[in-house]
Design a binder for these strands. Structure first.
Lengths: 339, 339
DNA sequence: CTGAAAGCGCTTACAG
DNA sequence: CTGAAAGCGCTTACAG
């Protein structure tokens, strides 16, 4: 298996002109005669020539490629965000390399190393829940590879960030439950170290406060973001002497766990327990009953993060003012919370 | 933003030796004295040097990178297969670039072009349902870039292929329904052009034949592979004068559509209609009732396809005997088909 | 054991 | 308008 590629040299040979001229003609340089240009371009087309991007990368020290690291591509929120990343990247002439951290710091580090060694031009990342330490990303920045954070952001990094208004989303979810008459509202939250966990928890607490409902420590449980976590914590909640009459789940995986645990335990939603979560819309409507949810503009988050990243990559001056964009979530009411 | 990278030249300068010697020392060549080697390696470590893979790619005309094209990374079957691809690729020192075709021929072509221009070493692909024409992949092969097909394969290509025994899976699913007493068994199938659609349809037909049940044209409906397709076709089936008493769905998305349509229409599973599908396990158990399914070893398919691909890439001789590996599916019985 | 030189495919000052 | 030369970062015959 041999890769035989047409090079500029071959075109030059066939046309009996120099490589320089071929190169310039191909790039439509104004200093080449129309006639030469035409000859070169025609032959290039005929031979099905396209430039070797590797040679160009070596020359420019640019790869026209960006990296994305997300915890899990199977998660709809992230696959949709990746869609947004690809959308902007392609339209601006960049390619996208996708990495999964599987929520592991070590995998994130290894992806970072790979990105650095591959001379990727920049990186969009949703930090793994295990990564309290973001030195590997800071180190990328120091090597001149810009990093933009989305969804999961970190205060330890100076850069552009795109996140949703987790506080407001959680506030609205909790307020909705209160307005439907719930008073004993539990919250199954993600890992403490993750920024969005804290924002959502604050929103939940403040909504309770606004309506004069006491905050109860035992009604807030933290867990890993997966279905099993939601299920286990629901067992724990429903085993309490004073049971909650509503559960607010901090992610879609968790909410699926909550949903299946409640059904399995024989509770009716929303009559026994009202449920709302941060969810993917397609998913929530499949469940029985369909689940109310705070939905996030994931595609748009990917777009905005990428657009900020490409601006960073293409800006010559180092002195960019970093910004944090906060997008709005939407609340979608379904049967699971309609007491 | 400047990328300042340590090069072999810099090490040579600091040590006052030649680039050649540095290069050889770093590659642990036997012709370099231990002393020099140590000096070089120590300094390289200190300066945090790592070789520029782009330069090496230019030299070797190899990128140590493979591409994967799947219809949709959000689909669990594919995200899991990608896991298998990454697993083998990483362990053999290759990186993976992931592309989505979104079931569009045009996107698949554009990914192929990108792959060719990036000089990717090889490609693993599950063909888009729209791609009856696979010339873009053949052209890749002709350029010396090996292509291995998995899941969705095509007779129009000579190469390694990895697929599951769709015929047998469909046969077993249908036989199971028959053994539970169903006699009017419908099948909602994928697009006609896709190879697995045909295999599954054959399995369904042959199971009916084995038990002396007449095949009824109107009980087999083709559709795009998405939830809406499953829903629409279920409407159509249940509107028939003679209704089916069982539906066999050809994919998980379709089966989710079948499930939600039946519930919405007021049918009980399995009593009114038994349901079985080609499904992802995690998904089927979330539905109410949980759905019986033919499950596929997706991770393993990704692994095997990649392992075959890397063998192709690394084999010097062109004369490889192409093989088609057929993996076995499993049948998982759940409430939806337990009449 | 070590170095100078050529070359991978391209671009771009520098000459003419 | 066109060409010869240098160089991006590396490897590897070829000399010594």
């Amino acid at each position: 298996m041999k890769k035989v590629s047409i090079t500029i040299k071959e075109i030059a040979r066939q046309l009996n002109i120099s490589k320089s001229t071929v190169s310039r003609a191909l790039r439509d340089s104004s200093e080449i005669s129309e006639e030469t240009k035409k000859k070169v371009i025609d032959l290039a087309e005929k031979l099905n020539y396209y430039p070797n991007p590797i040679a160009i990368s070596l020359l420019k020290n640019r790869t026209q490629t960006i990296g994305v690291i997300v915890p899990d591509i199977a998660n709809r929120f992230y696959s949709s965000a990746i869609g947004g990343v690809e959308d902007i990247a392609y339209s601006r002439g960049y390619h996208t390399m996708i990495y999964q951290s599987h929520e592991l710091l070590e995998r994130e580090r290894s992806a970072s190393r790979h990105i650095a060694s591959r001379r990727v031009d920049g990186l969009v990342v949703a930090i793994s829940s295990q990564s309290e330490n973001v030195d590997h990303f800071v180190s990328l920045q120091e090597q001149g590879i810009p990093v933009v954070l989305f969804d999961r952001v970190s205060d330890a990094m100076q850069t552009h960030k795109v996140r949703i208004d987790d506080y407001k989303g959680a506030f609205e979810a909790t307020e909705h439950l209160i307005q439907r008459g719930c008073r004993r509202i539990a919250h199954i939250a993600g890992p403490k170290a993750v920024s969005i966990t804290r924002f959502r928890l604050e929103g939940y607490k403040d909504a309770l406060k606004k309506y004069g409902i006491d905050f109860q420590e035992e009604w807030v449980l933290h867990t890993e973001i997966n279905q099993a976590g939601g299920t286990e914590r629901t067992y724990q909640l429903m085993a309490l002497r004073e049971r909650p009459d509503a559960i607010f789940g901090a992610s879609d995986r968790l909410t699926m766990g909550i949903h299946s645990a409640l059904r399995q335990l024989g509770y009716k939603m929303p009559d026994d327990v009202a449920v709302i979560g941060f969810c993917d819309l397609a998913m929530s409507s499949l469940l029985d009953p369909p689940v109310s949810s705070i939905t996030q503009p994931s595609f748009e988050m990917g777009q905005q993060a990428t657009s900020l990243l490409l601006d960073l990559i293409e800006s010559k001056n180092t002195l960019v003012e970093f910004e944090t964009r906060v997008l709005q979530s939407n609340i979608v009411i379904n049967k699971s919370s309609l007491k």
